[in-house]
Design a binder for these strands. Structure first.
Lengths: 196, 196
DNA sequence: ATTATCTATAGATCTATAGATAATGC
DNA sequence: ATTATCTATAGATCTATAGATAATGC
């Protein structure tokens, strides 16, 4: 007990990371403070020296989960693996993403609950969505030169379809239909941005 | 107290209707048994003579909410207001639907939570989704004669985009962006099925 | 001296059950 | 006699707090 400040900062990050994963897996209402602390190797009592409330943990956990696409984009810009419309869409609609919500997009995992959350949570998610739309718009513009307005519209349809398709694929208990949804949306979205 | 069997059946239906609305508004985890009973003008104690468990109420409440599109379709077939691809899409992407989840599509309201629910709940939702896709496929086929396979693919993209767009529009706290999402997806989906 | 974490618990809330009450229906 | 509903409550769970303990850091 009573470790250093440096260790506290690490502990704080660890709690947020675990919460971020667990919220995406089990929903904002599905994980308790005690459970998150236990998974971090700690006990409930210490929690409130890190966060004023459970809501604060939710906000922080959501923050670190959002903007993953933006970070990948920035990474690609500075020499990381290249990001294209195709790779983003393939990734989002992969069975891997469907089956691992804990490390996936927080919007497809939590949209329904976020819509019912307080203003701060919704504002965070709003900026995340705005950013994702901008990134996708950029990826489309890279393919279709000149038509900027159409690019943004297509980006909005793309993101809506991605989120909806993954949510449907996660609900559907018939594996064949679930795969059909992912495959079909993947194909049609790529057709849409293909030169024509 | 101690009313007739006929009245019990009515009471049962009323409980389910209220639960169906409240679950869509506040989430599967957001409403308690006591609250639903109170809204029905009853007390908690009587609940378990109607349902074996809260889960049973969830399943029944989801059942009555699902298949609304199918019922509208059947109604249209027997002389009701005509149902077209345009009307369905316009309706789904309306601000009215966005702002009244309690009387809207249970998939866009609850997909995230249903994906984390038990097998029975997911099976119910799966059949609801299958039915919605079939109805939309039919509406597209009515416009584009002959190309059946393309119709089903477009129906799957349509339903994914509808669900995703409404969820995003509900999350987004910036009214302008929220409306942009609804309008944009509405326009592009109708373009997609327009003769070309 | 300060503080990061622990144990213990208060207080709220929620599902489900037990037993009482007042109607229905044979 | 049966049963639909009521009041009351047991038992579980969850957030948040109080006070103790054992480290850090001046």
């Amino acid at each position: 007990m009573g470790h250093s400040q440096a260790e506290k900062a690490k502990t704080h990050k660890r709690i947020v990371q675990i919460a971020s994963k667990r919220f995406r897996e089990d929903g904002l209402a599905g994980v308790g403070v005690a459970e998150v602390m236990k998974e971090a190797g700690l006990t409930v009592g210490g929690f409130y020296k890190h966060f004023d409330s459970r809501d604060d943990l939710m906000a922080e956990a959501l923050s670190v989960a959002l903007g993953r696409l933006k970070r990948q984009m920035d990474a690609a810009a500075s020499g990381g693996p290249p990001l294209t419309y195709s790779t983003v869409v393939d990734d989002y609609l992969s069975e891997g993403h469907r089956d691992k919500p804990g490390v996936g997009c927080p919007i497809s995992a939590l949209a329904g609950e976020i819509a019912r959350s307080d203003k701060r949570t919704r504002s965070l998610a709003t900026e995340g969505i705005r950013s994702d739309i901008q990134v996708i718009t950029g990826l489309i513009t890279a393919l279709i030169r000149g038509k900027d307005k159409a690019a943004r519209a297509k980006a909005i349809l793309t993101f809506s379809a991605l989120v909806g398709a993954v949510e449907l694929a996660r609900v559907v208990s018939d594996e064949e239909l679930s795969r059909e949804i992912l495959k079909t949306v993947d194909g049609l979205l790529k057709d849409m941005v293909a030169d024509r």
